[in-house]
C-alpha cells in the first residue's frame, strides 16, 4: 500500500506552517500521521501537499501554570500525555484516556491535536476534552482564536477549524479538590476503537453530597455527547449507587445515535447507560479517596 504522490514541506514555525497552508489549499497538515497516513495508503485521502508540523518546537510539550491549568502543545503524543505527572495530577481523566488509545506504537506517534482535529467519533479524546471544559487554540491567517471544546466538534470528521487553520494548543483547567474522574471504554475487539467511551467527573461537597458532575460519551453519536441532564440530576444527591443508576436511567438521551455493522444504535445506547453508570461510580469512589 503506497500513498499517492504529494509535495512535502516541513516548516519550523507555526507562522510558516500557516503561510504554507494558505499558499497550497490542497495541502493537509501531518502531525503523528496515525490517522492520515493509513487513509493515504488506502487512497481515501490524496492531498497534493503534506505540511509536516510534527517537529515545530512550539507545538510540543506540556506546561502546568501556577493556576493549575495545563497547556498542551497540539503535537504532544498520547504517550507523553499518558505518562506525564503534570497531567496525572491536574487532569487524570485525560491521562487515563490517552493510555487507552490504540497500542504502544500508536501512542508513541499519535498526537492530541491530530486526534481532536480528525474528529473520528470512535476516538477517545473528544468527549474527554469536552468533559474537562478544555479550550482549543487555533492559529490561522487571521491570527489566533480560542474555541471551547464543546463548540469544536460539528459532525462526523468535521470541526469548526477553518481551511488554513492549525490547532496549536489544548488548555485544560485543573480539576479541583474533592474531585474524581474516570474514563471507561468498550472497545471493538479487532480495531481497539471505542464502540462507546464514557468520561465522568464528580466533585463532592464537604458533606459528601454531589457538588458537580459531568458525563460525556464518545462513539455513540457523530460528535461527543454531553449528558448534561444526567449531571444536573446528580447535583445535590448522595451519589449512592441507586442515585447514579436512577439519574442515568431517567435522564440519559443520546441524540442521533449511530448504528453500523459493528453495533446497532440501540446496543450503543445500552452500552452508554452501562458505561456511564460504571464511570460515575468509579469517579465517585476516587473523589472520596
Amino acid at each position: 500500500m503506497i500513498p499517492p504522490k504529494f509535495d512535502y514541506h516541513r516548516p519550523t514555525s507555526v507562522q510558516e506552517a500557516v503561510q504554507l497552508l494558505q499558499s497550497s489549499p490542497e495541502a493537509k497538515v501531518l502531525a503523528g500521521g496515525h490517522s492520515l497516513i493509513p487513509l493515504m495508503k488506502l487512497r481515501l485521502a490524496a492531498p497534493a501537499a503534506v505540511i509536516d508540523i510534527g517537529r515545530i518546537p512550539d507545538l510540543r510539550g506540556i506546561q502546568a501554570l501556577d493556576s493549575g491549568e495545563l497547556r498542551i502543545g497540539a503535537c504532544t503524543t498520547h504517550h507523553e500525555i499518558a505518562t506525564s505527572q503534570a497531567v496525572q495530577r491536574a487532569a487524570p481523566l485525560l491521562a487515563e484516556a490517552a493510555a487507552q488509545i490504540g497500542d504502544r506504537q500508536v501512542r508513541y506517534r499519535g498526537t492530541i491535536g491530530g486526534n481532536l482535529a480528525h474528529a473520528d467519533p470512535a476516538s477517545d479524546l473528544p468527549a474527554v476534552v469536552v468533559a474537562l471544559n478544555a479550550t482549543l487554540q487555533a492559529e490561522g491567517p487571521q491570527g489566533s482564536r480560542s474555541i471551547p471544546a464543546a463548540e469544536f466538534f460539528v459532525d462526523l470528521m468535521t470541526t469548526t477549524l477553518q481551511p488554513g487553520e492549525i490547532l496549536t494548543q489544548i488548555r485544560v483547567p485543573a480539576l479541583g479538590q474533592g474531585t474524581g474522574s474516570c474514563y471507561l471504554k468498550f472497545e471493538h475487539p479487532a480495531s481497539g476503537y471505542a464502540l462507546c467511551g464514557a468520561a465522568a467527573i464528580v466533585s463532592l461537597n464537604p458533606d459528601g453530597s454531589c457538588a458537580q458532575a459531568r458525563l460525556c460519551f464518545n462513539g455513540v453519536s457523530a460528535r461527543p455527547v454531553d449528558a448534561a441532564a444526567v449531571a444536573q440530576a446528580l447535583v445535590g444527591s448522595d451519589l449512592s449507587d441507586g442515585a447514579i443508576d436512577a439519574a442515568v436511567e431517567d435522564h440519559l438521551r443520546v441524540p442521533d445515535p449511530v448504528g453500523d455493522i459493528h453495533a446497532s444504535a440501540s446496543y450503543r445506547q445500552e452500552l452508554a447507560k452501562a458505561l456511564g453508570k460504571r464511570a460515575l461510580k468509579a469517579a465517585r469512589d476516587r473523589a472520596r479517596g
Binding site: 500500500m1 512535502y8 516541513r10 496515525h34 497516513i37 488506502l42 510534527g54 506504537q105 508513541y108 479487532a190
Partner: peptide, 26 residues
Amino acid sequence: DTSQCGACTVLMDGHAVKSCTVLAVQ
C-alpha cells in the same frame, strides 16, 4: 494494510513504531 499488525515494528529513537505508518522523510 491497516497499521494494526505490528509486523513492521522497529525502534525509532528507542521507541517501538510501526514503520508502515511512518514516512521515511519523517
